[in-house]
Amino acid sequence: MPPAGGFERVKYKRNLPLRGPSGVVILAGVLGVCGYGFYRVGKGNLEKRELGREKAWSRIYLVPLLLAEGDRDTYRREQAAVAREKDIMAGVPGWEAGKKVYHKEGLRGPSRIVVL
């Protein structure tokens, strides 16, 4: 005979605690984070290009100034070298001070610079 008040209800419902966000949510989250990262990388690449341009132009603008200063110094050293050569070779007849060893037109920089 059944007990008074009937049988207890059969416990058929599964007891599963919440297991966190679903796979779809995690996938969407990962894609979102990666997407934001790649967006920043792309932005950073564009920015890096502009920073490089800025640096290049800052140097381009300084070239004439530095070159002018260097030219004056090179010219001074060349003149000094010729004067020195003239002085040293004064006793040698037919010696041309400062004569280049090459006959071809066009600039060849001084092969060595004497720093005095």
Partner: peptide, 19 residues
């Protein structure tokens, strides 16, 4: 001027102006 001639003696005047 430098493009014309790379010789240091060639552009001294322009170089002074730059400085």
């Amino acid at each position: 001027c430098k493009a014309e001639d790379r010789d240091p003696a060639h552009c001294l005047k322009e170089g002074r102006r730059v400085t």
